[in-house]
Design a protein around this nucleic acid. Sequence first.
DNA 1: TCCGATTTGTTGTCCTAGACAATCATGAAC
DNA 2: GTTCATGATTGTCTAGGACAACAAATCGGA
Lengths: 301, 301
Amino acid sequence: MNKLSFTIANVERETGLSKDLLRMWERRYGFPAPERDANGDRVYPAEQVERLRQIKRLIDQGHRPGNLVTAPPEQLAALAVPPESGREAERTMAPFSAFLDELRSHDALAFQQRLQHALARQGLAAFVRDTVAPLVANVGQAWESGRIAVFEEHLFTELTKRVLRQAVGGIAAGNAPPRVLLTTVPGEPHELGLLMVEALFTLEGAQCIPLGVQMPPTEIANAATAHRADIVALSFSSAFPARRIPAQLVQLRAMLPEATAIWVGGSGVANIDGPAGVTLLRSLDEGLVALATWRDSPERI
Amino acid sequence: MNKLSFTIANVERETGLSKDLLRMWERRYGFPAPERDANGDRVYPAEQVERLRQIKRLIDQGHRPGNLVTAPPEQLAALAVPPESGREAERTMAPFSAFLDELRSHDALAFQQRLQHALARQGLAAFVRDTVAPLVANVGQAWESGRIAVFEEHLFTELTKRVLRQAVGGIAAGNAPPRVLLTTVPGEPHELGLLMVEALFTLEGAQCIPLGVQMPPTEIANAATAHRADIVALSFSSAFPARRIPAQLVQLRAMLPEATAIWVGGSGVANIDGPAGVTLLRSLDEGLVALATWRDSPERI
DNA sequence: TCCGATTTGTTGTCCTAGACAATCATGAAC
DNA sequence: GTTCATGATTGTCTAGGACAACAAATCGGA
């Protein structure tokens, strides 16, 4: 376990920063400053990779790269303190701190049981709205401020997905219109949002067709045709680069028949303007409203 | 829906071929031959993207790129016919053709019911070995030879994952040693293999910790320590570039404590030599044998 | 004083073109 | 046949240049 080092491809995988960008930062800011191997290829020491990971986190939080990349390590640590730690935050966090504690102590069983318990107590719809959705937001914040590790977040996602899926499986598949095709575009691996929508829509009797994540746009179009979908529902997490979303939607809109609606939700669309022909849903409730509206309107929006 | 075109980033997402490689092929072979927009950026027409997708499929099947990329379109179609279509293949396919037919006709409900039925009839262990595993292989072949579409394969994966997960959820979580951490490395998004292993191991009473897919190696190491895992189990599908596997394993081996075993399975490791300190499992049965051996040997292999 | 428009930085991604290691195939020698 | 060397194939790295999209700051006018 002595002196770990990484190639540029490894760093890309570890941090999610593209090779192009890593080279650009090196050229512009002098950081990262990798060694070179016998072939002249970059070799990144573990500390720099760690610092890059930290920088990435802060950028996702909204900080500007230029300041971050040139900043000395101690300054990075200072920025990493959570943005809002007031009384307000404390109060909204409180009901979920038990969940977070279990995650941090890696007690998968207890966490899952607490979820199941909440589900049994609240019923599926309330469970999704009042437990899962806020919990996702809390975990997201905790991850942004570095309070939980990547693998803890992965475990959270995996366990929550299981409970949700099991709950959805327990109710009869919907067979009333509309037919809703659920997926995400390439680069967006987060599935929890889709599952939450699927749970709520299935409860309403809609037919959901879950296609998993990261479908290339042309395949989404093929699938929509094959399944005669009325609606294509996409989810974007806040980790997805917001400036890319409109282009993706325009492309997809061009590929789909006009009769097929596109509904887009997730924390990634909070501050976005959707192109024409695309319905933005900024909360789960808006999704339910949209579903009711769709069913009410004979001409189909 | 007129004249679709793609940027190089879009083509990368659609086909999985890196930008570097797309430019290299253009330089060397003259294909693809994209237009240029006002900025001089490449603009790929839809036909070329389609042909690239076809080429990618054939390369994954084992063909050499040089011949493929320069080959005229009609020759590509000729190569796309399935490799083995003898009586033998017919016979091994037969029990699964009903599944495939349902996939191709996009009948999610019937497919899922057929799975559930097989599960109820066979029990979980036999279901995994005799239904899911061969089905995955069949679908993989069908996909390679172009007989099913990407989105059909996605639907298959999603539905099968659901049935498996539900079955695993139905049995009590294991609490006997060993503790097995299940995940895949970045670039390997296929989760079905992990779920099959989890089903079998959980049936044996082992403690499985599912971390989902695409964990960066350093995070795998952190997770293994935090969860005091005895074994880190990785899965590689045949879609993962085989030549990259050894390097990944060596890197991970260096990060993990020596007491932690690494077990690697999946169709991607069929023709691979594992580095020292890594156990290759070339079938599900070998996995079960390894588990029994681990439990029998006091000194821990 | 404040709002909107214009200018100035900042940032990521694209471009070309060269190099080379690793892999695979071919043929020669055993 | 089998093994080894040689040569072609193939993917990924390197360097540095260009520029569009976005954010910030400055300026002019009401």
